[in-house]
């Protein structure tokens, strides 16, 4: 039997599951509900200052990147659950997208 390379994706999936369960709910509440309803000051200056702070930037990066690994990992396996036998190309596309999002978020925060 061939050794699976799944441990790599499983590790990232696990980190994503934790971030999505612990951090994502409050972020959705703030950015998606409270701020749009005017309960929270979400001005450019304020958000820009938060993103420029090292800790703030790390929080944003974690909130964008890890859940990508969680969700794309699950959706890839869901294809199999729904009887779609996706090949290596689809697998590369799913995990490639997660990697791309991770790098893009870091790039946008750093430069």
């Amino acid at each position: 039997m061939k050794r699976s390379n799944e441990p790599v994706f499983w590790g990232l999936f696990g980190a994503g599951g934790m971030v999505a369960a612990l951090l994502t709910p409050v972020l959705i509440l703030i950015t998606g509900i409270l701020a749009p309803m005017g309960a929270v000051d979400f001005s450019f200056a304020r958000v820009d200052a938060f993103a420029s702070n090292i800790l703030g930037g790390l929080i944003i990066w974690a909130a964008v990147s890890f859940p990508l690994w969680l969700s794309l990992h699950r959706l890839y396996h869901c294809l199999h659950d729904f009887g779609v036998h996706a090949g290596n190309g689809v697998k590369a596309a799913f995990y490639g997208a997660a990697a791309l999002g991770t790098v893009a978020a870091a790039y946008l925060l750093l430069f």
Binding site: A20, T24, L27, I28, T31, G32, I60, A63, V64, S65, P67, L68, L70, S71, L72, L75, G101, A104, A105, L108
Partner: peptide, 10 residues
Amino acid sequence: VILAYSVILL
């Protein structure tokens, strides 16, 4: 929805 939210944040 978790994927969609990450993309919205991005």
